[in-house]
Amino acid sequence: MQRTSWKSKATSSLFVLPYLLLFTVFLIAPIVYGVWISMHEWDLLNPVKEFVGLKNYLNIFDSDSYLHNLFFEGLKNTFLFVIFSVPLLVAVGLGLALLLNALPKKLTGIFRTAYFIPYSVSVSIVAIIWLWIFDTNSGLINQYLQKVGFSAIPWLTDTPWAWVSIIIATLWWTIGFNMVIFTNALNEVSEELYEAGSLDGANRWQTFIHITLPTIKPTMLFVTLTSTIASFNIYGQPYLMTRGGPGTSTQVLLMNIVEEGFNQRQLGNAAAMSIMMALIMIIISLVQFRLTREKKEAMK
């Protein structure tokens, strides 16, 4: 008996083993290695890697160090993008889902496809298409603006327009995904609730606030969390559309990490910056999660 159970456990373990192996090699090991690198003066060209403990982290918080500026300037720009893009990604995503729901059934499919199509292209294609549309001289938008008597807008070369352009392109690209998730959630709000609402004489707005919103709350949390994480990881759009400019105004944190690690070859600093960025993302996710949970409990 003892022996069969041992054998059974062994075969069962074989199921988990391949994943555990990849998990260890491509996730756990890199994390440990990253922490190790971050505690060294790690110059790619210098064979001597000096152990410096937490010095790289302390430099990030030392306002006299260039690392401080590199990190917090980048973080500020990333935050700027997160703060403006996430509410739009959530609200417009929900708005489009509501619009699809209000359409005659025959038309829902075709409009959903139209709104969802840009999600299938990759970031470099998004950038190429929108660079051409935002082009100051031959771009589509400026030509229309000038035709109706406005002056051209420096979409990619001046603030705040550079961010406006990046956010418009990002919305165009990714909003379809959030919309689909919201559409599914809306379909699951039960008809009975709506009927009860209309019997009570609730209008559209009241139905939305008192019936729809509370029911799709878990979806709101999911979409907010995933959109926040995706927005924090922004890299391709500013890298390809504005090159971080004008000046360094769209130079996001991830760009600075890549710059410090790959162009300046200071891997110790870059690793410390990555770990700090990851910690900030984890904290923000936890706070968002907590806030929604507390609100739920307060409502009970």
Binding site: L27, P30, S274, I275, M277
Partner: peptide
Amino acid sequence: IPWVITFLPLYMG
């Protein structure tokens, strides 16, 4: 765990 934490060490590996 955000992906940003692993990409540098993975590259080095």
